[in-house]
């Protein structure tokens, strides 16, 4: 049952039922969110660059000693907690990208901005110890498919959606 009081008045409340009494509590807050030290990653996407981080601390016995890259990036090394070095991997590891796993989302949650159905992928890259979650706007992903990055530089959203991937073209 839906029963509406006079909603023109500032104190008006939408009542969904009377027994039990169920009302609506409307809200539409805006969060003011900062990327902080991870800004170079999201700024880079809109400029056509994929940025990763690497621990260059010679005293680090784990990530620093191994020399691998993190993408998603971390501001601080998870092992020695020193600040990491930003590395542009657009023309390097990103050119070795492959589909690690993939899905097709048919029923996304609220606030989704991708077209439905959307093809989500996890991306593995040589020299990168992590796998990056992302999406493909064109093509059908399969595990092992070779990829190249596509950047939204024309009207960046400054979110992870500015990066997508497509099957790598033969060079």
């Amino acid at each position: 049952m839906s029963f509406t009081f006079d909603n023109q008045r500032p104190t008006a409340t939408v009542v969904r039922s009377l027994h039990p009494l169920v009302i609506e509590r409307p809200r539409s807050p805006v969060h003011i969110h900062s990327y902080g030290g991870e800004t170079p990653f999201f700024e880079g996407l809109g400029q056509g660059r994929l940025m990763a981080t690497r621990c260059d601390n010679p005293a680090c016995t784990e990530a620093g000693a191994a020399g691998y890259l993190f993408c998603p990036p971390r501001v601080h090394c998870p092992d020695c907690l020193e600040r990491m070095t930003w590395v542009d991997i657009t023309d390097g590891p990103a050119r070795t990208a492959k589909v690690h796993t993939h899905i097709c989302v048919l029923h996304p949650g609220a606030f989704n901005r991708l077209p439905t159905p959307s093809k989500l992928i996890s991306v593995e890259m040589e020299g990168v110890i992590t796998t990056l979650m992302s999406h493909m706007r064109v093509g059908v992903p399969v595990i092992g498919m070779e990829l190249e990055p596509v950047f939204n530089t024309s009207s960046p959203t400054f979110t992870i959606l500015d990066l997508s991937w497509r099957q790598r073209r033969a060079r």
Binding site: H33, Y35, E38, F42, P72, H100, T101, H102, I103, V105, H107, P108, G109, A110, F111, N112, R113, L114, S118, L120, S122, L132, M133, S134, H135, I143, T159, I160, L161
Partner: peptide, 26 residues
């Protein structure tokens, strides 16, 4: 999920488990 790197991608936990299901299955 990670709000900056993952949530924007589908806004659904079923998707994040589907990625695991696909990898495991294959």
């Amino acid at each position: 999920a990670d709000r900056d790197f993952e949530t924007e991608l589908g806004h659904t936990y079923t998707g994040y488990y589907a990625l695991m299901a696909q990898r495991y299955w294959n």
